[in-house]
Amino acid sequence: MKRLFKRKRFWVILALLAFVYLNNSSLLVQPPDDKPWLMAHRGLGQTFHMEGLTNDTCTAERIYPPEHPYLENTLPSMRAAFAAGADMVELDVHITKDNQFAVFHDWTLDCRTNGTGVTRDHTLAELKKLDIGYGYTADGGKTFPFRGKGVGLMPSLDEVLSAFPDRSLLIHVKSNDPDEGTKLAQRLASLPADRLHLITVYGGNEPIAALEKQLPQLRTMSVDSMKACLLPYIAIGWTGIVPEACKHTQLQIPENVAPWLWGWPHRFLSRMDQVDTRTILVIDGGGFSSGFDTAEDLKRLPDGYSGGIWTNRIDRIAPLINRE
């Protein structure tokens, strides 16, 4: 009797393991015909070397020799990104002193512009007078190739929404101020439902939580929302069940974490698609703006990958993806 019980337990365990494998292995799934979709980080801008990079580093002072004339987070850079093949453009916003939203990356003005102080302490009109190309240099300050060319190029969020009425945008709230989330929700609430569907907002936990309360139909993402989705998924995803927190959101998955997700890549992407959630693959968590920027980076993608790709060099990556 004891031997029979052990034999039954063995077959039950074996059946369970077989179920887990068959329910999550992408080896048994025909890869989709779709190509990866491309998310252009800050549009098409100048890139920089990342050796010794910290949160306080002025990246405008370490750009590579310019290969194109565009500055990040500007209307020309976004147009260039879409023209190059971007499916979505990411942009950064700050609330201004007069309660508008300026599109600019840095918390302070001193690195990139000829202004000083905290970005949000200025009115939009004051910010528009600045030269946002003032601080860029590729040779340690010997030359400044964009100085004088960035005057008036800092756009407002309203200008971006007007310029790209039917394109997908990823808006990054740079603060952790809940009031900023509330004000952004009030601005976006005036948009029609079909336009709102093309917009995703991510950022600090507090502004995103405040925005979700005001505008629950908007797709959002924060560290808290990522944890709320992925931790339960890691626990129960082997069953094929997708947690409620994973529905209608966005996931920015580090490439070193992705292989540990149940069903990665094809079953996982299919499950997220079925609950209206977008998945973007980033390099090593996306720290310090890292993205899939070279042909070598693309070689690390899973065969048949059809999710999103985070890139700083849409001009390089789009032709390679479209050539496949």
Rank of each mutant, 00 (worst) to 15 (best):
V282I: 09
L196Y: 04
L301I: 02
S77L: 10
F104I: 11
N24S: 09
I199G: 10
I171A: 12
L124V: 00
L75G: 04
I95M: 14
S77M: 11
K174C: 12
G45F: 03
D121C: 06
N73Y: 10
F292V: 14
L196W: 03
A80C: 12
L16E: 13
V29Q: 10
A40M: 06
R167Y: 07
V118W: 12
I253L: 14
L215F: 08
D131P: 14
V282Q: 00
T182K: 03
I321F: 04
P254Q: 11
I317P: 15
D293Y: 05
D33N: 07
Q46Y: 06
T59M: 02
L75V: 07
K2F: 01
E126I: 06
V89S: 09
D33Y: 04
L157K: 09
L44C: 12
L22Y: 03
A185Q: 05
T279V: 13
Y134H: 14
R271D: 06
Q250P: 00
I199L: 14
V20Q: 01
A185G: 12
T200H: 00
G115Q: 00
A84Q: 12
L109K: 01
I132M: 15
D179F: 00
V275M: 06
E244Y: 05
S26R: 09
E126R: 00
A228M: 07
A185D: 04
V89G: 08
R62P: 01
Y70H: 15
H41N: 13
D303H: 11
P243E: 06
S289P: 05
A86E: 15
M221A: 12
C229Q: 01
N114K: 02
D177H: 08
I314K: 14
Y64I: 14
T113G: 09
T54R: 06
E90L: 05
G308V: 08
L71V: 11
A18D: 00
V103R: 13
A138Y: 07
K2P: 10
T311I: 04
P145K: 04
D293I: 09
D166Y: 07
F19P: 10
I253R: 14
C246R: 13
R112V: 04
W264I: 03
M78C: 07
H68L: 12
A80Y: 10
A163C: 01
N205M: 04
L188R: 07
L109C: 07
N256P: 08
R187F: 13
S25A: 09
K2N: 09
